[in-house]
Design a protein around this nucleic acid. Structure first.
Lengths: 344, 344
DNA sequence: TCGTTTTTCTAAATCGTTCTAGAGAATCGT
DNA sequence: ACGATTCTCTAGAACGATTTAGAAAAACGA
């Protein structure tokens, strides 16, 4: 079976390839009569419209925007934050004939994908795939604040988010804080302090997370920090890492997780041990995902879906006047935090 | 700024374009020394590898597989079934340098996307986008059973799923059943019976759903059926449609929802009205999504994630021997169904 | 009716890459 | 040392479409 191309079809109808192209792309450039004849012939020959590859090569557009997110692709659909963001993104994209390419975190894949623009989410700048994305020289919408006035991004003030948490905990009297990371360490590692930047500690977190830790630290100058890693950003990881934090002599009085999923997993582990959040141990998360309210988790809310929508708009239209958007955040205090209890 | 192409780079290094291409695609076709020189020059000129469009035009491959799902794209990330399926899909795809294109339900978008293969999910064959997908003549993996031995698909026996529910309800003594659809009707419509095929009733449901209704009907020959539509396949729709079903004189004794989300929303509405599922009204769903167990929903379980994984494998490798897979299903009886209570 | 505008269609160049076939140099086995 | 094999590299033709500039025909305005 020989492939039907625009040329084949043009010959069959007796017109030039340009005209067939116009029949599909610029209907008002030819008579309705001829256009219909072309479309009929197309149906007859089984031609289903211009080939995607040829079209995007010549036109320089592909009608797709990419999302590069998380260290691992399958988290894209299991992490509530990512799902929510994507839901917002799709809302603005779905009526535009543009499709969304979900990129695996591989430089080859990023290089290979047909895209008009892309956005990155929850990925460290140092990651090879992120570097590949930057190198492609494709239009990019970020989710973190940058200095460059040419960049476009939609972000929250992560440092301020950290400060909100820090002030809250300081006011409640907390001095011993353990921080829950999602990566950079072997799962189940607990170290004194990984937050202070130093040699060998760069790139441990994505820039957003780092800023949160800085804000936290800044507003709790008198506190001692420890660091625990669940290895991944998941409910399971939060639950698993709990044993390291809870079942030790110098248990902290507060735990701050880099994300709500991690915090929710941790809360679950506390429940198992019959510990009451907010009384025996205070727990804070970030983002305010769907389950946070039900679990009574104190967290810093950000408009995740709105973030996705705004990123979507910027991806679609690079000419938008508002190219750098800082979204509002808000500390939502629930039952998982409380004043530090007198040592038993 | 002039664009750097393979040709530019080749001239700069003093080799042929073919050689540059080989440097990227067939490293063992040239000396390591020359290859390194080419890569260095690329870095210097800011060339980040072969252009995606040119490459996919020439090679005939694009390194991407598409997913066409649901009538509306944003449901893709809010419907637990779709999310779970996608999670399975990504698991097998993420280590292959292949990306996943999420297609909006528009024929233009489907036509325009650069894809090697695609799969459809929860979409009626009659939908324009589905037709466009079929017309493209691209390799397709379906999620419904077909007769054609050349097709490849991963599916469950939807008719049998319906039968499992029907037998269960019949045994419990139910004779008045209302069926909850997700589309085909204005939201909030209640009709006598839309399941019997007939003129004007074709295409009301996707084929999978239709099969479920057939199985249900088949095993409940003595029951009377009514149909209610929430308009969409969502928790909200399930809750909204409840008023139509519950607050009327001839309330049914059992409600069968085409999906668990719909059923869960319905259960929520019952709770609001202080009705006890399984006693005042029996409710059944399909799929056994994450929330079903907690809600005590009787449902027909299918291995959603596994379905996604298998579809992914078939999308990647068309030569796979197992090209038609029927997955096992199982009726999971929980507290939302019970014997029909004597009329008060 | 005649110049002007609009409509309808086309020729030819181009987008950036990969592929096939093969040339020439280097290496190998004996 | 000679034919056979392997290693490097290249020329040139696709891949399938869109775009630009413009020709020919038709419609328009006065």
């Amino acid at each position: 079976m020989v492939r039907v191309t625009i040329k084949t079809l043009a010959e069959h109808v007796g017109v030039s390839p340009s005209t067939v192209s116009n029949a599909y792309n610029r209907p008002n450039q030819l008579s309705g009569d001829l256009r219909q004849r072309i479309l009929d012939a197309a149906a007859e020959l089984g031609y289903s419209g211009p080939d995607a590859a040829g079209r995007s090569l010549r036109s320089g557009r592909s009608g797709a925007v990419g999302v590069l997110l998380t260290e691992s692709l399958s988290y894209a659909f299991s992490d509530p934050y990512a799902v929510r963001f994507l839901a917002g993104l799709t809302q603005v994209i779905e009526h535009t004939d543009t499709s969304i390419v979900v990129l695996p975190p591989s430089p080859e894949a990023v290089q290979r994908a047909n895209l008009d623009a892309l956005t990155t989410l929850c990925i460290r700048d140092e990651h090879d795939a992120a570097k590949a994305a930057a190198a492609r020289g494709i239009r990019t919408v970020g989710t973190a604040v940058t200095d460059n006035p040419d960049d476009s991004w939609v972000a929250i003030d992560d440092r301020e988010a950290g400060r909100l948490v820090g002030r809250h905990l300081a006011r409640l009297g907390h001095r011993r804080v353990t921080v829950l990371l999602d990566n950079g360490l072997e799962p189940g590692t607990l170290t004194e302090d990984l937050l202070t930047p130093g040699p060998g500690k760069v790139g441990i977190q994505d820039p957003d997370s780092l800023a949160r830790w800085q804000g936290l630290r800044e507003t709790m100058p008198e506190a001692e920090f420890a660091t625990a890693s669940g290895g991944y950003n998941s409910y399971e990881a939060g639950r698993a890492v709990a044993s390291l934090v809870i079942d030790r002599q110098d248990r902290p009085t507060a735990v701050v997780a880099i994300s709500d999923v991690l915090a929710l997993g941790f809360l679950d582990a506390m429940r198992t041990r019959s510990l009451t959040p907010g009384r025996d141990l205070s727990v804070v998360g970030f983002d305010d995902i769907a389950g946070a309210e039900a679990a009574g988790l104190t967290t810093v809310r950000q408009p995740i879906e709105e973030k996705g929508r705004l990123v979507g708009k910027l991806l679609l239209d690079p000419e938008l006047p508002e190219r750098q958007v800082l979204l509002p955040i808000e500390l939502v205090v629930r039952s998982s935090t409380g004043p530090v209890s007198p040592t038993p």
